[in-house]
């Protein structure tokens, strides 16, 4: 399936989404409120493999980036959800794609995104009792353990 066909198909199903075709794969932008119903519908439509889940800090807002594909058709799709930087909250998808459980815990501690209804939202990599800012945010400064050159 080409990017055009994929776009036309998805446009019918999710009329509120906006698309971006400039990159390597088709990018679908949706709102936070739409995310959970969209994710459920996409899993039902065959997108069974989420191969990357991450977050990007754009200083004004956070963007959740989900890379997924179907293991039968192999046409990757990128879904982006923009979050409020001061109070980032999004529904978990760990019950839809089980791999999201660990990846969401990672994003939770490194970016401070709160995943609603996550079964086990605890620190994964950072030491217990970690307080302060989230390390992968752009305004994080650590004078003791320098990670910048």
């Amino acid at each position: 399936m080409t990017k055009e066909e994929q776009k036309l198909k998805l446009q019918e199903q999710y009329p509120s989404a906006t698309f971006d075709e400039t990159g390597q794969w088709l990018v679908m932008n949706i709102t936070v409120a739409d995310w959970l119903p969209t994710a459920e519908a996409m899993r039902a439509a065959g997108f069974d493999y989420m191969f990357c889940l991450t977050c990007v800090d754009f200083k004004t807002h956070l963007t959740m980036v989900y890379h997924m594909e179907s293991t039968t058709e192999r046409t990757p799709l990128v879904v982006k959800v923009q979050l409020d930087r001061n109070k980032p909250e999004i529904e978990t998808v760990s019950h839809i794609w089980r791999t999201a459980e660990f990846h969401e815990r990672e994003v939770y501690e490194l970016f401070g995104v709160n995943f609603l209804n996550h079964p086990d939202l605890r620190l994964l990599i950072l030491p217990d009792g970690w307080e302060g800012k989230n390390p992968l945010r752009k305004d994080f400064e650590d004078p003791v353990n320098m990670i910048k050159l």
């Binding site: 191969f51 990007v56 800090d57 089980r98 791999t99 459980e101 660990f102 990846h103 992968l136």
Partner: peptide, 29 residues
């Protein structure tokens, strides 16, 4: 397994954000 590199570039000489999708992380889960 599958190793993925995701680079977000803002046009500069350094990556704006980089994410490594490491196979071990998912395999451990």
């Amino acid at each position: 397994g599958e190793f993925g590199v995701y680079i977000v570039s803002e046009g500069g000489t350094t990556p704006y954000r980089i994410k490594f999708r490491s196979p071990g992380f998912s395999n451990l889960s």
